[in-house]
Amino acid sequence: MFNCGRVGILILGLAVTLGLGACSATAPNDVVSHGNITAKLTDLDPQPVTSDPHPTLPVTVRSFDGTDVTVSDAGRIIAVDRFGTLAQTVYALGLGSHLIGRSTSAKLPAIIDRPDVTPSGESMSIEAVLALRPTVLLTDTTTGTPAQFEQLRAAGVPIVFFDPTRTLNSTGPQIQAIADALGIHDQGVALAQRTTSEIAAATAAVPTANPKVRIAFVYLRGTALTMLAGPGSGADALITGLGGEDAGTAAGLTEPFVTITSEALIAARPDILLVMTDGLASIGGTDGLLRLPGIAQTPAGRTGRIIDMSDSVLLGFGPNTGRVLAALRAVVYR
């Protein structure tokens, strides 16, 4: 249960409220709980820019791995990446009905019934992918080995890779690249413009703080896997967009994610801890987090400033990003 004496800020199950009608923007109801005040965002699904567009195919695009890939059919799409960004974008482009497979991280309510082809939570199952008979696979280099991708190519599956790096500035271009690979350029323009405008509005509204609030993103999957984010993790870009200072980067980390030691965490001196909702649940909630070595000795641990956000949107850097920033801003600077 919520303990306002120990936890100053908590976002539980953050989602983004968007209507599902074509092209009509709706304002989200920020879901935040601060002390014992709770509000809820009820819909994680991004709003499609249109309904069931008609791809102009075939198209040949340059994949992130440097190869030219021809896509002739977008009727059966599998979208797999670490944070569910690709599946989220396919849905927001209006091709949700064409999406036949997803990664574990793609937990949007509108597509949760699609088969999960990453049963381990990270790497693809080649058998699961082939069983779905995809006409195109959208992915990045984090979801499988070169041998697995070669096996899929040998089976005739067109594979388009996208940049796994997550930044605010790359969100619009990646949306456009996904749309172009599926033969729906105009829908990509519309969605990229909408998303970029929402990100700009959210960051413009961030208040100036001196000193900047220091935020640490902690990746949790049970007590056996606890990692601190650093440069290139995506969390650093999100924190910078919030006008904050990434604690991992400030502490001298050189890798996107590093296994936490209590000494490193204490040295990072975060004012706020940012975590994913499912990850927080996996260690027994806020009380479990505060029992991890070093957490209670940080400024965030001492004041109980902990923010958690739904796994499916926090580091997605897709169509929901502007609303994610707006909701986080509301809590960080409340």
Rank of each mutant, 00 (worst) to 15 (best):
3 N>F: 14
242 L>C: 05
77 I>L: 12
277 T>R: 08
60 T>E: 15
166 R>P: 00
36 N>E: 12
250 A>G: 03
328 L>W: 06
211 P>D: 03
66 G>W: 08
208 T>P: 02
49 V>D: 04
191 L>M: 08
23 C>G: 15
143 T>N: 07
190 A>V: 12
313 V>M: 14
24 S>D: 09
169 N>A: 13
306 I>E: 00
94 G>Y: 05
69 V>F: 08
55 P>R: 08
73 D>A: 11
154 A>N: 10
95 L>E: 05
297 Q>C: 04
53 P>M: 10
251 A>Y: 01
184 I>R: 09
145 T>W: 05
83 F>C: 12
210 N>D: 09
138 L>T: 05
245 E>Q: 10
80 V>I: 13
220 L>M: 08
323 R>S: 15
15 A>E: 10
127 E>F: 11
129 V>I: 11
115 P>L: 05
211 P>W: 01
249 T>L: 07
109 P>K: 13
186 D>A: 15
11 I>V: 15
169 N>K: 12
150 E>F: 02
165 T>Y: 08
11 I>H: 03
293 P>K: 02
184 I>M: 11
50 T>A: 15
275 V>W: 02
55 P>I: 08
21 G>T: 15
125 S>W: 12
78 I>Q: 14
270 P>Q: 12
95 L>C: 06
246 D>C: 06
47 Q>P: 01
181 A>I: 09
311 D>R: 00
325 L>G: 03
39 A>H: 09
102 R>Y: 07
85 T>V: 11
70 T>I: 10
323 R>W: 07
41 L>Y: 08
107 K>P: 07
127 E>D: 13
177 A>Q: 15
139 T>S: 10
306 I>T: 01
131 A>I: 10
167 T>P: 01
28 P>T: 01
95 L>Q: 07
299 P>D: 05
39 A>M: 09
65 D>A: 11
92 A>G: 03
137 L>E: 05
25 A>H: 05
88 Q>P: 06
160 V>A: 01
144 G>C: 07
45 D>W: 04
226 T>N: 12
246 D>L: 04
125 S>Q: 13
152 L>T: 02
277 T>S: 15
37 I>Y: 15
71 V>Q: 08
81 D>T: 14
46 P>S: 09
254 T>C: 04
42 T>V: 14
238 L>I: 13
266 I>Y: 00
144 G>W: 02
89 T>E: 03
308 D>V: 01
16 V>A: 00
291 R>W: 00
68 D>E: 12
134 P>R: 10
98 H>C: 05
70 T>W: 14
271 D>T: 11
332 V>M: 09
257 F>W: 10
